[in-house]
Design a protein around this nucleic acid. Structure first.
Length: 687
DNA sequence: GGGACGTGTCATCCT
DNA sequence: GGAGGATGACACGTC
């Protein structure tokens, strides 16, 4: 016996994107490995695994009334049952659940379910997975129940499928209006669907169909902005194209080579969505924020029929970085991710949506939705604010007549190519609208993170698994690099290239004109953040940069060990710490250098002053010496004027000199003897 | 436009 | 051996 673990709690971004698509009337089925199989601690479920959000205080195992299987029941809301995969007949189970008025969650449609649950604004956010079932049936898919003529055939949203696809129109889509007891077996229907598709696959030459499809795609993309109101012929073409898309996708799906919904498919879907596909959102039904307790019986819609497109989980994951940070503390973990979505405030008039028919309008609509989010929403949800900025940019470009090429160049220069320049697929950019679409699809979540992911640790578009603890070498994980899916999106680069490229892209991205563009069109909040802060935000690092840098090394290591962090997160954290430390060191170094320079300048000043003093003293001494010499000269003449020789004649001072002996006696000697006497021996003088 | 200055970052050496 | 400090060098932004 196994428990099913929804992936959604870690896939907020994906969920959010799915919500957006759903808001626009697109049905996205994330029909891939959405679950982790968690072994139970006990058969009866008294100890449900709650490390991932399943709290034993909130859920318990409960046998289905008819026996044969177990479900996960939400405590306090016992009618919300979670299907056990070992139930032999899901259809039987479904009927039982329907009979009880219990919302049933088809296992393979959980994300769509989640989308509708969240979109319906289940006030019980933490239990939105199970609790919002009824509301979800109405919130987005409820157009059928409203009796809309367009939505009725294709509850999931695409009436083309209802018309052209026997799968969608004839079998699946008929269920929502059926009584609960007549709801068909979803799994069995899926098998039937696959069988039908396989037959169709065999009947159609898919190679030629693909070529034709691609041609139509390019053509369709070029005309997507003008095809608001097509005549019936064009509508038929779109129907055919949509069918071809479904065929091609189903072909890949059946061949096992398809991981889901490709970017091309999604783009084609977006560009070829007729008005009716967007009109499935009933203006009378609040999409978000509604607390109405929708009754499943009155809005009985099979969730599986809300699905008209499949999206590869991996591809979807590439759309945005995931929140991969898990605390080991389950209490903290369980209540984190849901709340922001419940704060999603739908304020846009649904009428606006109804008339949005092209990609430009679609993204404008998404933009409007995003603007309704609070910063707190954006902070906690995985879809980064910069993602919205990117959407905003394109919205501005289209709504305010801004040059889309200029905008595109801005992003390209900043390392944020709106088109999937790293994408190695054969998608060609036939016009700007495709660039917009690809940008919206293939973008990274952050201006910074794009280049960072692209150029730094996220080589190959590595978006680590949420459950993977990261205590291994964070630079040696190359498994993801070999994933074709990831190589499909991003390229590999070395770390040094990453840094340099990051520097260059940063410098390029905010120079001159681009800065003006940013300040004109964007909230400058993120711009005020440091690069590391933006990086940390992009990777949802649960610590502040200040903490990372200033924390003592022991606390730092303890922190890293206490949290489940991805390799990329650990790498970024260490880089942030290293750069932060080095930044402080550089500041200190410069401060010391400045202090040293100032100190040396003081020394120079002091030495100069001392030199001036010495020179002044020297001058004074020289003056004193001169005075002394003058006095000595005067004394000389005075003495000689009083001296006479033996004949009484005055002694000529030019011929004689006074010589002082060591004993104090003074002699008068001829000058010629003074010199030689000094040289040879001291002369004997007379007084 | 060019220079001075401040700042962040990296590489390298050293503790 | 790793963490971190110190520092030269470089790039870039700002004035």
């Amino acid at each position: 016996m196994k428990y099913l673990k929804p992936w959604w709690s870690d896939g907020g971004r994906l969920l959010h994107l799915t919500i957006l698509l759903s808001l626009a009337g697109l049905r996205v089925d994330l029909d891939l490995d959405l679950y982790l199989l968690i072994p139970p601690h006990s058969l009866l479920g008294d100890e449900l695994p709650h490390s991932r959000g399943w709290s034993s205080s909130a859920y318990a195992l409960s046998p289905f009334p008819a026996g044969g299987g177990w479900g996960l029941a939400e405590l306090g809301r016992p009618k919300c049952l979670w299907a056990d995969p070992v139930v032999p007949s899901e259809g039987q189970l479904l009927r039982e659940v329907r009979a009880l008025g219990v919302p049933f969650i088809p296992r393979t449609r959980v994300d769509a379910w989640l989308v509708h649950s969240v979109a319906a604004g289940d006030p019980d956010g933490a239990h939105g997975l199970l609790g919002a079932a009824a509301a979800s049936s109405v919130g987005v898919v409820g157009a059928a129940a409203d009796g809309g003529s367009q939505a009725a055939p294709g509850v999931g949203g695409d009436p083309r499928a209802a018309q052209s696809s026997p799968l969608a129109a004839g079998e699946v889509d008929s269920a929502p209006t059926e009584p609960a007891a007549q709801v068909p077996d979803t799994r069995g229907r899926a098998d039937e669907d696959n069988e039908i598709l396989r037959e169709r696959h065999e009947a159609v030459d898919h190679s030629s169909l693909h070529e034709e499809n691609e041609q139509r795609i390019s053509t369709q993309k070029g005309k997507s902005l003008q095809q608001k109101n097509e005549d019936g012929e064009n509508a038929d073409k779109r129907d055919l194209e949509a069918e071809q898309i479904n065929d091609s996708r189903n072909e890949r799906h059946l061949n096992g080579t398809d991981t889901g919904f490709s970017l091309e498919d999604l783009f084609q879907l977006l560009s070829s969505q007729p008005e009716s596909s967007l009109e499935v959102i009933s203006p009378d039904v609040p999409l978000l924020g509604s607390n109405d307790d929708m009754n499943l019986s009155t809005h009985n819609v099979n969730i599986s029929q809300a699905i008209s497109q499949d999206v590869s989980l991996h591809e979807a994951m590439l759309l945005c970085p995931t929140n991969n940070t898990f605390r080991r503390d389950p209490v903290v973990r369980t209540s984190e991710p849901q709340e922001p979505f419940l704060q999603l405030n739908y304020q846009t008039n649904p009428e606006q949506i109804l008339h949005e028919t092209n990609l430009t309008s679609f993204f404008s609509f998404l933009d409007n939705q995003m603007r309704n989010l609070t910063n707190q929403d954006l902070l906690y949800q995985d879809l980064d604010i910069n993602t919205f900025d990117e959407i905003n940019l394109m919205s501005f470009a289209t709504e305010e007549g801004f040059d889309a090429i200029e905008v595109s160049r801005l992003f390209e220069d900043s390392g944020l190519s709106l088109h999937s320049s790293h994408n190695s697929t054969s998608v060609t950019k036939s016009n700007s609208s495709q660039s917009i679409c690809e940008g919206a699809i293939g973008y990274s979540s952050d201006l910074e993170s794009h280049s960072y992911h692209d150029l730094e640790g996220a080589v190959g578009g590595y978006y680590p698994e949420p459950t993977k603890p990261c205590h291994t070498d964070h630079r040696s994980n190359s498994g993801f690099h070999e994933d074709l899916t990831f190589q499909h999106i991003l390229h590999n680069h070395t770390y040094h290239l990453q840094q340099s490229a990051l520097e260059s892209t940063e410098s390029l991205s905010w120079s001159g004109k681009q800065q003006k563009i940013w300040t004109r069109y964007f909230n400058d909040t993120d711009r005020n953040l440091s690069r590391d802060e933006r990086r940390a935000k992009a990777l949802d690092i649960p610590f502040s940069v200040d903490d990372i840098v200033r924390m003592p090394v022991d606390s730092f290591n303890t922190m890293l060990s206490r949290y489940y962090l991805t390799d990329l997160q650990v790498s970024l954290i260490r880089d942030i710490r290293r750069r932060g430390k080095n930044k402080v060191a550089a500041q200190n170094c410069r401060k010391r250098k400045l202090d040293t320079i100032l100190s040396l300048e003081d020394d120079v000043f002091n030495l100069q002053a001392k030199k001036e003093n010495l020179e002044r003293e020297r001058t004074q001494y020289n003056k004193a010496i001169t005075i002394m010499k003058q006095k000595l000269h005067d004394l000389y003449h005075d003495v000689f004027s009083r001296l006479t020789d033996d004949e009484g004649r005055p002694v000529n001072p030019n011929q004689y000199a006074l010589q002082c002996n060591h004993d104090g006696s003074v002699l008068i000697v001829p000058k010629e003897l003074v010199g030689s006497g000094h040289k040879k021996e001291k002369p004997t003088g007379k007084e």
